[in-house]
Structure formats: structure tokens, C-alpha cells
Design a binder for these strands. Sequence first.
DNA 1: GCTCACTTGTTCGAATACGATCGTTTTAGA
DNA 2: TCTAAAACGATCGTATTCGAACAAGTGAGC
Lengths: 387, 387
Amino acid sequence: MSPEQPTEPTGKSLFSLQRRERLMEDLRAHGAITVRDIAAKLGVSELTIRRDVNILADEGLVSRVHGGATLPSPLDRSAAGRAAQHSYSIGMVVPSLDYYWPQVISGARAEAEEQNLRIMVRGSAYDAADNRRQVQALLDTQNIDGLIVAPDMSGHHGHELLRWLNALPIPVVLAERRAPAEIPAHRLEWVATDHAFGAGMAVRHLWQEGHRRIGCLTDSSSPTSPHVVRGWQQALAALKIPLEDSVHEDSARQDPAKQGNGGRASHFDQVLELCTKTGTTAMLVHSDTQAVAFVQHCVDRGLTVPGDIAIVGYDDEVAYLAEPAISAVRPPKQYVGKVAVQLMAARLAEGRMRPVHRIELNPDLILRESSIGAPRIPAAGVLQDSL
Amino acid sequence: MSPEQPTEPTGKSLFSLQRRERLMEDLRAHGAITVRDIAAKLGVSELTIRRDVNILADEGLVSRVHGGATLPSPLDRSAAGRAAQHSYSIGMVVPSLDYYWPQVISGARAEAEEQNLRIMVRGSAYDAADNRRQVQALLDTQNIDGLIVAPDMSGHHGHELLRWLNALPIPVVLAERRAPAEIPAHRLEWVATDHAFGAGMAVRHLWQEGHRRIGCLTDSSSPTSPHVVRGWQQALAALKIPLEDSVHEDSARQDPAKQGNGGRASHFDQVLELCTKTGTTAMLVHSDTQAVAFVQHCVDRGLTVPGDIAIVGYDDEVAYLAEPAISAVRPPKQYVGKVAVQLMAARLAEGRMRPVHRIELNPDLILRESSIGAPRIPAAGVLQDSL
DNA sequence: GCTCACTTGTTCGAATACGATCGTTTTAGA
DNA sequence: TCTAAAACGATCGTATTCGAACAAGTGAGC
């Protein structure tokens, strides 16, 4: 009877995939369809067709228009996104997930979103063997097109790891690390904070506050430490402060038997004694956790900060929590992640013709109570343009 | 008599996208269309067509004219002009317009086009006073939002110039220059080729070719020279070649009385004599022009290249012209310009919160006849991963 | 039986496309 | 240069479509 019924009135309902097939058939036949016609023809609601059209449009198979759909057209500006669809996955291996690195990761994530990249993060221990394990795990299980990594580079194993990374078939970007010049890791790119610059900035600041003997307390177990020390030394040299009788202590080189809180306290006492002996009135303390402990210790010993001794920390993770709040050098952690992803995206897009980029970012100096407002010798004019 | 009805009189209405496609078809067919014709043809109001034309013009697909539209024309300044209106002008001051820098400029220009920036280039002499004059001229006469510059940084005047650049109210990016650490030019950004890396690459290449005494001939009047020398020294150290009896000569430090071609010839003779005396079989020659002259001199003296002495040049401007063609380290000049503009564009867009970026790019080593194919000691396996 | 995941339908406020009017700008012709 | 006609853009109104939220139906797996 009624031959005029729609092609598929009530008979059997179609699966969504079949429906979309039919939709595409009609589209190919006529060049364009309206939601209303198709909905009537297939006996489903218009909303359903709209949803189908959206799905097809997301895959670039149709161009959406008000009221229907057409064959994909170059005039369809939403098609631009389609090109970027075959996006890359990049792996990221960082040595800590609770200090310093969360912000780096967050910067990387934001930029990855921007660039339409997927990013997979893994934490690792601070040692080369585990770094390699984590990278290998990413290579094996995921489909990684690029790698951002902050490896341990100390000792023979570290160098071996660098060579291995350099030989990987995918591009590798180091974050907060630089391959030493003697290792010809000619393919590795990196982005790192210029910690030497940061340390220099801290020293100059203290000098401007009137301090003329500025010490340095570091923890050589951190990969950042050598750069901080170098920057401190360079700044002292530039300011003509003799290096030999400046306080330079390293918490990691303490007698292992004395480790623990007791050991730390006695080490701090030793540092303070040295300061008194040499007339040192300001200290740059690497890693702000240590700076917080040191300030606490000073206060406990009855010293005022910055009155008796001024402190500048390094990293600016927890410096603001101390009492008094500690001035600190703040590396641009967000940007380290962001730029690492930018490097990777550009490398993946441009291929081998792009020259290897190696980027240093300058940190900021965040001034708080621990280093200002206790005037000594009025600042000389030599450094008028240093801040 | 009525076949004259419009193609699509009332039949079915078209979607806007289809309408625009039809419009573009007509436009491609005839080169130009009038709003009235198209409106009649497609059976819509003229206003609708005008709107379509506006949309297409926004995407740069047509040029709007009174009464209709034409294919996009470069004379249509509304397209490029409008976008470029918001955009910035940046000045660029380089020390030479015929050696090395043309390619840097070309890279900068291409990227500026991409980023919709205007770029104004001025040549300058290789001295700080003229650098400053040229920059000042740009600041005075043009409306510069940023500056890319490759200043002379030698001596007191050079340092003074850096301080002045650092204090300018607009962002400054150095190209192929780095501010020394002792000058706290904390606002200056830069992009520079890692010439030390390039020199090291050349030395390692020569070592792999079997050379065990590798000399260096530089011209200390060039700002690049110190980096080349440093890279050469580091590579020698890494390869455990004793530095003290390696040939290291500087053409700029020759007796001024002997300057000129005669002086140069005698200096080259002197260098060759030193090579013989020390058993040096390979030379890294900074600035390719000098390398070309040196190769010519060797050939004139009856030496074969690379048979008796292997040569690697630096800069790769004219190295391919020599007979035999000279292997040379090729700095990524295009990219230096490109990255400088990228840095500037990002700085102008993001403002002061963006940390200072300092970027090094690695050069390539272009192998030609002057350094290969004259096997000596078979290459040892130590450097398997160095190329 | 049950829940869970998935798909489809309904309703309704928001967004969009298109056309009409009218004042302003541009163009062509005297 | 002036003037009239054409073209243009801003604003509004209307018809239609879109999509978010919620509701309901279906099949798979336990």
C-alpha cells in the first residue's frame, strides 16, 4: 500500500554507522543535504542527524552549514583543524613529581594543548639507570614521536645515557640540562635556566644592599648546584670580592656519619662560625628548602635576618613560607616546559633541516624580607643598571 | 523564449557555503563578478551576496571592489594592509651587507613576512660608534618597536654600547652576538651560532679522516674568531691532542707593515713552515675567504689539497668556489635571522613576563674535496657517534 | 533479575541566516 | 567641480536552526 512512505519509515532501524553511510551516499549524490530531508528520509529526529553531521564534520568528511551539510569545501574554515589532526605524542621523563617539576610539567601541558600534542609524563629517580628505564618504558609501550627528558648526567653512567639519548631515532629535548661540550651529542637540543645568571643576580642584589662579603651554601648532589656556584664565583670576580676568603660550603659533602637533622644543625653552626670569622654578612643558599632550614636555624641561634645575616634562596618553591619570607631566585619553570614543547613541535614539523637549538632562559629575582631593608654601606653607583 | 530564467530561480535554495563556492567558480571563470548578477543568478538578495563577498574577502580569497569582487590582487591593500596595520616595525642593524649577513637578513625577512612584521635593515661599519649611530638613526626617523642588532662589542666602547642597548626602551635582540657575563645586560636576548661547536665538529671530522695534528688559522679582527678558537681548543683537549705544539696563527696580528697581499703570502708561508715543523696535516681556517686564499697559496706552492694538507673553512660563503672545493662549517644563517624575528615577535606579543631567551644554533659541516678522500691513519672507533 | 553504557528523542532558550529599510559613501557622467 | 544614481553598511525583525539539559529506550554483561 502506501508506496509513498519514506524509504525507511519504521521497518528496521539502522545503526548509527549505517545511518551515516546513507547520509554520505546522499551527500555524494546531491552535493548537499538538509538536516530536515535526511531526518525524514531515515525516519529519525533531526537532532540525531545533526549529531551525525557533527561527527562527520569532525572527521573532515563533510562541511557543516546552517541547515545541513555539504561535501567538504576548501572554503570551510573549520577544516583547518583537520590538518593538525595527525598530531604527535611526546613523552616526558622528569626526576621529581613534587619539587620544581610540577610547574615545568604544567607549562609543557599548556603548550602541548596549544600545539595539539599529546604529552605523557613519567617520574623517575635521580639516577641514570632509572632515567633510562623510564624512557625505555615509554618507547616500548606508548607510541612516542619525541622525548623531553631531564636525565641525571653525572659520572660515567650519565655520559653513557646521554650518548644513548643522542642516538635515539626520535628527537630528544633536554629540560634544565645541558650536554657537556666534551660529549658530542650533536643531535640533542635543550632548554635550561641560566642558573649562573640567577646566582649572579642574587650576588649583585646583595652587593647593592651593602654586603661586601657574600657566601654560598650549596648542595652538590643537585645538578643545578655547579651552575649556581659558577655564577656566584663569576659575580664575585666581577665585583672584585676575593674568592679565597669567601665562605663556600656544600651540605652534600658533610661527614656522612653526621647526616640527619643533628648533622645538619652542626653543619649550619659551622657555616655561621665561618661567616663570623670572615665577616660574611650575606649568604646565597641553594635549594630553598635548605634556605628555609638555614633561616630557621639562624633565628633559633638568636641571629636576626636580614639584620645579622641576609639570605637569598634558590628555586623559589617554598621560600615565601619562611619567617621572615626569603628572597629567592625564581627559575621560569613554566617556560622551561613551554619552550621544551615548542622546540619539540618545531622539530617534528620541520625535520632535520632545522638546526639544533639550545636555549637558555633567565630567572627572576623575587625580593622578600630576608635580604632587604637592613642597610649597610650605601650602595655604590657602579651597578646602576644591574637590576 | 523563456530559457533566460536564472540558473537556480526558485528550485532549491542553496546553503551559504555552496553559494560562496558558486560565487568563487564564477569569479575564477570571469575574473570578476558584480553583486547584482550573482544575486540574480542565485536567487538571493544582493545584501546576501555582499555579505558573502565580505566573508570571502576576510579570508583573502577575493578582493572587494565597488559593485562586486575580483580575484585577489596585490594592489588590494585592504588584505595585507589591514593585518599589517596592527603589527610592529622592527629595525635591524648588521655590520655587512655583502658577506654572511645577506642570508641572515633573508631569513629574517621571510619570518617577518610570516609574522606580519615590517623590518627595516641598515648596514653599519664594524665599529661600536657607527653601530650606535645607525641604531639612533632608526630610532629617530622610523617608528621602531624592536631592534635586532649585531653590534661590535670589543673594548670599552663595545661594552658601553651594550649597556646603552640594554637600557633602550624597546626590546633588543642580538644576532650572532652574546653579551659577556660580566656585563649585566639582563634585558638583552640573543640568537647566535655556536661557533665553538662548529669548530669542534670540524676538528673531529679531520681527526676521523686520520689527521693527528690539526692547526687553526684565524682572524682575530672578526667577532666570531674567539669562539672558533675556543671550540678548536676544546676539541683538541677532548681528543687529547697537545695544545702547546699545535699551530695557531692569527692573520690579524701580523706585522702591520707587511699588510697587503705580499704580507699575506709571507704569512701563509710562515704558517706552512710551522705545519711542516710540527707535523700538522690539517688546518681549520676561519673565514672562508681566507680559506680560499690559503688553498690557492698551497696549490701555488705545489702542495696538494687534501693530500699534503687538508683544509676546512668556516662560514661557507665562498668555499665551494675554490679549486679544490673546500669543506666548510656552515652556520645556519637563515635561521639566525628567522629565530631573531621569532624572539622579537614573541617578546612584543608577551611583554615583560616572558623570561629572557638566549638561543644557540648549531652549524652544519659541509664536506667537500679539501678534507676527504686522502686516507691516513684509518679512523679509530672512538668517535663512532660523533657525526 | 539488575546495572551500566550507549544511543535516541523532546523541549526550549540561544544563535544564526537572511531580508527590509534607511542614511551614508562611492562612482560615473556632465 | 558638481550632481544623481548606484552601492554600501548599520540596524532591526523574522524565520529557522542549533545545542544543552534532561528523559527514555536498548542491548551487553553480571
